[in-house]
Simulated scan of single mutants.
Amino acid sequence: MSLYDDAVAVLKDLAATDEQQSGLRDVYLEHLAAHPDGVYKPCRAGHVTGSALVIDPVRGRVLLTLHKKLGMWLQMGGHCEPGDATLADVALREAVEESGIAGGLTLLPGGPVRLDRHAIPEPCNWHLDVQYAALAPADAVAEISEESLDLRWFPYAEVAAVADASVVRLMEASLARL
């Protein structure tokens, strides 16, 4: 199965939690039907990305990265690469690369937590983000990557003060599944 086929299957199986998520799922599926290259960055009409919110449920905190280009506190995430077999692989690879947590991250069971579509600067139009949650081991040590200005653990209660609404919604949906 190709990454494209996995993306279509994951999206078709995704249980939407509300009308907005159901509508986004349909937008993503329509995009992929129209763009067989829609999982990769060169697709100028937009492309699927994978991300993961790293959660430390023992300490009640999440790990956010201060994105180098956007200057915003976000979950770990990025573009699909040719070696990725599944969207889950994309999300986990990005979480490991950007968090520096070399071993022990595991995706929260049950597949993606949310979908989030956001505009990006030209030459592309959209990121169609498929969002997962990754559980960190109790002894996890995070290390800043080249892609970040900063990397920091935030208690759940502080996330809304530093991150945008999409990150807060992802955190809330992730915590509801713990």
Rank of each mutant, 00 (worst) to 15 (best):
L29I: 12
A52K: 00
R25T: 10
V96L: 08
L128N: 07
T86Q: 11
L178F: 12
K69G: 08
S166Y: 08
G111N: 09
P109W: 00
A163P: 07
A136F: 06
G78N: 11
M1K: 02
Q131P: 01
L178K: 05
K12H: 08
A134Q: 06
K12N: 08
A16G: 13
R59D: 11
T49I: 09
A142G: 06
P123A: 10
A102V: 15
S99Q: 09
L87Q: 06
T86G: 03
P42F: 06
L70E: 12
R169T: 10
M1A: 13
Q20F: 10
Q131G: 07
V10H: 00
I55F: 01
A173Y: 05
G110C: 13
L63A: 04
L128D: 03
K68Y: 02
V168K: 00
A88P: 03
P137A: 06
H31E: 06
V159S: 00
V96Q: 05
T65L: 15
V167F: 00
I144T: 12
S148E: 09
L74P: 01
A142Y: 07
E143F: 09
Q21M: 15
E172C: 01
A161C: 06
L170K: 02
A85G: 05
L53P: 04
E94P: 05
W126P: 07
K69A: 14
L105P: 03
L107D: 08
T106Y: 01
L149T: 09
G104D: 14
A52D: 01
R169S: 13
V168L: 10
I55H: 05
D13M: 14
Q20Y: 13
R59V: 12
W73P: 01
E97Y: 06
D164N: 14
C124Q: 15
V130R: 02
D5H: 12
V62C: 13
K68Q: 08
S174R: 02
V39E: 02
D84R: 07
P137W: 04
L149K: 14
R93A: 11
E30Q: 15
A160P: 00
E98S: 13
A91D: 03
R44S: 14
R59T: 08
A161N: 06
I101N: 03
E81I: 06
P42K: 11
R59S: 07
D150G: 09
R117W: 03
A161K: 02
M72G: 00
L3A: 05
G38D: 04
P82L: 14
A119M: 12
L149I: 12
W73Y: 11
H35F: 08
L66E: 05
T65Y: 04
G100V: 09
L151V: 08
G104H: 13
G46H: 09
L24F: 06
R177N: 12
K41Y: 13
D18E: 12
D164H: 05
L11Y: 05
V62A: 13
H35S: 09
G60S: 11
R59G: 03
A136M: 09
A88N: 02
V167Y: 00
V90K: 05
L87N: 04
